[in-house]
Design a binder for these strands. Structure first.
Lengths: 339, 339
DNA sequence: GGTTCTGCTGAGAGCGCTCTCGACCGTACC
DNA sequence: GGTACGGTCGAGAGCGCTCTCAGCAGAACC
């Protein structure tokens, strides 16, 4: 084994050809005869040559990498670890990148110095970037420097985005609760910093108004389970007659269910609980959560495909349907999971 | 705004200095006077210059990126999306990379062509790679080509690894169940392809033997909730007198709890359930799962730190403690979550 | 045989940066 | 005044690859 990794030069020398020919062969570009092709290929396996992606990227001017960037408000340990959302983001991207010979780079941008970090990522973007939970102003900043960006959350008008009808989903969720006979439908809202949370709040408010119900919304803060637990408990104390809860995300909803059953009431007999997202937390909860499905994987997969296809028109929008998934937590499940 | 991104050459011309000086300034290397430093910095902001990471990497020979590589046995949508484990892996790495100006690249390697993919990643590794769930043979192959690799699962002897006492954790879990008065302690095992699953299985077997209990282990297959649900149901039919279940991972344990309560029995009054991992699924479950905590974030953070520090001695081992986390699913919780 | 055309092939110029090395200056010392 | 030396600075040689372009065969045509 030689001292350091073989380069294209070594392969060329071993095969008795020029670098250009080796390049043609390893990139499957026409312009090399079958004979030389074979010689080069043999030299490649003999030397155990693997192209240096960095050099390739610099020379060709195009590196094949998709960046996913998210703003972290909490320390990083809580970032991807606490919320199943980001797993789904990555899974969707991964599914289209698989076999496409494109790398996936993950960036967590802290609140402090976010602008500089965004600039650096934009400057080095290649295939493009998938923006998740980036505040509209920052997303616009990114897009100004790099057109190859797609947000998977509602964002500034100029930035291409994958959209989902959060307000409509929330409306449908409340409506479903109403259809099940619930009349005291409370809500646990998400953080104001999130556009999704805001839209879900709006949908809830519109639904209760339209249905002539009381607005029993409570601020739950960040999308974490603990907040769901605590807020549900507070809600139960303040409004003991609540018979349903619409919760802005599954993780909080799982916490809410725990608070409800720990307090001696039953889900769904006494209180129906409806989540949002259809994440891992929805199926791990007991009873499993009825929820509004947000097709995160499909959205990020579509975003990635868009980037892979080339230039993305500014302001490009793509709509994704939300879908009511009925499990046990609301009662009368569409598909009972145990006979 | 000019046609394309400004280069170091443009900055040098604007500041009236050489490329070398600009390089010194932007890298904070001594050897440039305060006067020129200021001129360069001004030119940088005026032009909106951001260094090209690719060129920098090629020239310096060291790109700053950590690769995390995992083998995906199922289609990618199920890969990161279904299992909370990978979120924790990333969270741990992210926590030490934050601010370190090091990129994170994620690789999912399919079973087919895994060897070639591994080779390509090893050849392009820079800071190094964190290997998760890579079979020992593949991990060794990676390590042969690139010494800067750390596995966070049990692996070949040559490959540096972060280790956790899976067998001991399983033993302690069964022992705890015994201490709570349980005598018919069943187990739901994980897939044989996973070294973790194997060790946990061993720990269970040793414990029941030592305690004089019957071995009521059942193969659960892959680490997914559905398997936990189905296997628990089967277990309940075959051994109706079971009073505790030790489940090889939280996700399966969440499924097991659902099967138990859906079948009309109570957790923990009738049946205690103990999970493994202490993942998101543990706290989302209802009742929350008692489990054996695997400090995944700490392990991947340590692996990353090791890589960042430089050369990793072959066969390097670092032990991490498992820890029993008692919640409601086993009864007599150490810390009641609701007064 | 001369010309054009086509298909291979290699020389060589970058891609944008880092980093060594030598030039040069001013100061200190003998 | 001559030498030594530390501190600045720029020229230029790469890093490993891609890709254009010119050269040069051999085939096809007049």
């Amino acid at each position: 084994m030689s001292r350091s990794k073989p380069t294209i030069e070594d392969v060329a020398r071993a095969a008795g050809v020029s670098r250009a020919t080796v390049s043609r062969v390893i990139n499957n570009v026409p312009g090399a005869s079958g004979q030389l092709r074979a010689r080069v290929r043999q030299a490649v396996v003999e030397l155990g040559y693997t192209p240096n992606q960095t050099a390739r990227a610099l020379a060709s001017g195009r590196q094949r990498a998709v960046d996913v960037v998210a703003v972290t408000y909490s320390p990083a340990t809580g970032w991807l670890g606490a919320h199943p959302y980001y797993s789904r983001v990555l899974a969707g991207i991964m599914s289209v990148l698989e076999g496409a010979d494109v790398q996936l780079r993950v960036h967590a941008v802290g609140e402090a110095g976010a602008a500089e970090a965004i600039d650096a990522i934009a400057a080095n973007a290649t295939v493009g970037a998938v923006l998740t939970n980036i505040p509209p102003a920052l997303a616009a900043r990114f897009h100004r420097q790099c057109r190859r960006a797609v947000s998977v959350t509602a964002t500034a008008a100029s930035v291409p985005a994958m959209e989902v009808d959060n307000a409509g989903g929330a409306y449908a969720a409340v409506e479903q609760l109403y259809r099940l006979g619930r009349r005291r439908i409370a809500a646990i809202h998400g953080p104001d910093a999130s556009t999704c949370a805001l839209d879900r709040r709006t949908g809830y408010a519109r639904a209760v108004r339209q249905l002539g119900l009381a607005d029993l919304g409570a601020d739950g803060g960040d999308f974490v389970r603990e907040n769901g637990y605590v807020t549900a408990r507070r809600l139960l104390e303040r409004h003991p007659d609540v018979d349903a809860m619409f919760v802005a995300c599954d993780l909080m909803a799982a916490g809410a269910i725990q608070a409800i059953t720990a307090g001696g009431r039953r889900v769904p007999q006494d209180i129906s609980v409806m989540g949002f997202d259809d994440s891992l937390a929805a199926v791990c909860s007991n009873p499993p959560l009825s929820t509004v499905r947000v097709p995160v994987e499909e959205m990020t997969a579509a975003a990635t495909r868009l980037l892979l296809d080339g230039e993305v028109p500014a302001g490009h929008r793509q709509q994704f349907p939300v879908e009511l998934v009925l499990r046990e937590s609301t009662g009368q499940p569409a598909v009972p999971s145990f006979p």
